[in-house]
C-alpha cells in the first residue's frame, strides 16, 4: 500500500475541483433570487445534460448503439425504467453478437 505524494496532491486537486463544481451551483441559486426566465431555463438542465451524455452513443458510435438507443426510447413509452433500459442492453448485446 503505497501513497505517492504527487499522486495524493493530484487526487486532492481533483477533489477540490469536484467539491467546487458540486457546491457552487446550489450556493449561487440559494443566494440570489432567480428571474422567472432563469428559473424556467434551469428546468431544461436535466434533459439537456442527459441528451448530451447519450448523443455520441446514439449517433456517432455504431449501428448497434443507434438501434439500441431507439429501442430503449420506444420501450420507455410503454415500460417502466428497468425493463425499458434492459431492452436497450439486450438489443445492443444481440446486435454486437450478430456483428453489427
Amino acid at each position: 500500500m503505497t501513497l505517492d505524494p504527487a499522486t495524493l496532491a493530484a487526487i486532492l486537486a481533483m477533489m477540490a475541483a469536484t467539491v467546487f463544481t458540486r457546491l457552487i451551483g446550489a450556493l449561487l441559486v440559494s443566494r440570489f433570487t432567480l428571474s422567472p426566465r432563469l428559473e424556467r431555463a434551469l428546468t431544461a438542465v436535466p434533459p439537456a445534460v442527459l441528451m448530451a451524455v447519450v448523443t455520441p452513443t446514439a449517433i456517432a458510435t455504431g449501428p448497434a448503439e443507434t438501434i439500441a438507443c431507439l429501442v430503449a426510447a420506444l420501450a420507455a413509452l410503454r415500460l417502466p425504467l428497468l425493463p425499458a433500459a434492459g431492452a436497450g442492453v439486450v438489443t445492443v448485446a444481440l446486435l454486437r453478437a450478430a456483428g453489427l
Binding site: P47, L50, M51, V53, V54, T57, A58, E65, A68, C69, A72, A73, A75, A76, L81, A84, A85, G86, A87, G88, V89, V90, T91, V92, A93, R96
Partner: peptide
C-alpha cells in the same frame, strides 16, 4: 452490453 446500461437508462429518463 453492460457498457450500454448507462446510455439506456439515461434515454429512458430523458
Amino acid at each position: 452490453g453492460l457498457d450500454f446500461a448507462f446510455p439506456a437508462v439515461f434515454i429512458v429518463l430523458l
